[in-house]
Design a protein around this nucleic acid. Structure first.
Lengths: 167, 167
DNA sequence: CATTTTAAGTCAGCCTTGTTGACATTCCAA
DNA sequence: TTGGAATGTCAACAAGGCTGACTTAAAATG
């Protein structure tokens, strides 16, 4: 498809409504694939996708506060609390009172939490690895560029913050 | 397959666990953006994301049967039926008994249905258009290549079937 | 010091959207 | 004529969102 050599003069075929519609459907179908493998694992346990997301981001940002996690996940504290409570009860997540500000709780994965997080992430990554490999490095770069441009500015900020120093 | 200049010798940095994790987070944040605009419109009406999906795919594949739509959406007939019933009651979707096989129902958008579908899709597309434009045609091609590689084979088949003749 | 604000947690109730299971109807096809 | 497929419907349930109201503790601020 259009290898845009000429930003001005070209037909911009990739911006037609039909192309955009196709892109939307690709997002829909791909997201299903993206969540399918960890979902299968979670089905066996008494957890859902919400638990996976919490584990994922606590792993990524260990010591994060509850408030910070709320912002990242984009849910209410009541929703998150329901998930977090079971994870803490089950010994997958540890909540630690803040040292400088004792109102805050800092969240960490326990060893068991890390183990489950790894199992879920491995399942998810193996599909992504195959997709990335099939598509090649340049496609992956484009993939990321488009996804990033699609985010809300506030979420993009969060995204960069998470990857800061690691990316 | 891999575009790479040096399939063997290169570091394959884009396949490290950290890079894959970053890709997963990009998917998560971008999908939020992807659904945000139509969701805002739906909030006002008494509809949800499920209604949007039904409208979208009936628009894309007019005359589709219920069973076909079930496969595409990946939900149970009971779930779809609940959504479909309200759309039909509200005069957005028309269900037509099949001519050759009278068990089947063929689904079409009414004029009102087309109007709402367009409103929702326009909202979604305007963000995608901006993202595509920002990222450029080559990035968009990569974006689509990766998404397609991420789909379940059965869904990829559905995806191609939908775009057949149009894509 | 008194007051206000912030962080977190909790309770109750509601909605959407997914699920199973059971069952009826209609109609094609062997 | 009978079996099976496609559809529709009813009931019940679960996950995971939401709002609103309220408490506790601690920090920040006047």
């Amino acid at each position: 498809m259009s290898e845009g050599r000429s930003p001005q003069g070209e037909t911009l075929l990739f911006l037609t409504d039909e192309q955009l519609r196709q892109g939307a459907e690709a997002m829909f179908f791909a997201y299903r694939g993206f969540t399918a493998d960890p979902d299968r694992i979670l089905d066996g346990l008494s957890y859902g996708r919400a638990h996976h997301r919490a584990l994922h981001f606590i792993h990524t940002a260990p010591g994060t506060t509850v408030n910070n996690l709320l912002t990242i996940l984009g849910v209410t504290k009541q929703s998150l609390n329901r998930v977090l409570r079971t994870l803490i009860e089950d010994g997958l997540v540890q909540s630690q009172v803040g040292r400088t500000d004792k109102r805050e709780r800092h969240l960490y994965l326990t060893e068991a939490g890390e183990t489950l997080e790894r199992e879920l992430s491995d399942a998810q990554r193996s599909r992504m690895r195959a997709a990335f490999r099939d598509a090649g490095p340049e496609a992956v770069a484009g993939f990321r560029r488009v996804l990033e441009a699609m985010m809300d500015p506030e979420l993009r900020r969060q995204y960069h913050k998470l990857r800061g120093g690691r990316g």
